[in-house]
């Protein structure tokens, strides 16, 4: 038990990302308002970005912009890892694009049904099916 607490102390970035991811997942599953689900999705994707970026960190080192001297030898251990940052640039852009498409779809649904609450929409659909 104590082992787990000391381990969590050294790896608190993983605990942070897991908490954020579970918050996002909870919002997506439980909330019935479509915009709240979209916000939950955004939180979910952001937690994965946090995970990647936190693995790139090296204690006490500086940002990965090397000195502007073409002939100096560069010690890679003095800089943090640039690769996860690049991967996450892509992931951020993808998450923004997904957010845009989700909002466009939500707007279309609002125009059609007049409400953004999933429960009300399902009731609407059930009454329609009952009539036809």
């Amino acid at each position: 038990m104590e082992q787990i607490f000391t381990a969590m102390g050294a790896k608190y970035n993983y605990v942070a990302y897991i908490i954020l991811m579970m918050v996002g997942l909870y919002a997506m599953i439980v909330k019935s308002n479509l915009v709240k689900k979209i916000i939950g999705m955004s939180i979910f994707q952001t937690s994965i970005i946090l995970f990647y970026v936190s693995t790139a960190y090296k204690t006490g080192k500086t940002i990965p912009i090397v000195p502007y001297d073409a002939h100096a030898a560069v010690q890679a251990a003095d800089f943090i890892n640039p690769l996860p940052h690049v991967l996450m640039l892509t992931a951020i852009v993808v998450s923004v694009a997904t957010l845009g498409v989700a909002l466009a779809l939500a707007m279309k649904i609002y125009r059609q049904y007049g409400t953004l609450e999933e429960d009300d929409i399902h009731e609407d659909l059930r009454s329609e099916e009952g009539k036809s």
């Binding site: 999705m41 997904t98 939500a106």
Partner: peptide
Amino acid sequence: RAPLSSLNYLFIGTIGASFYLL
């Protein structure tokens, strides 16, 4: 009913793709 089905697909598909990324 296409936009609602598509939005539902979007939510579940994004979870799937994010799991793959993880």
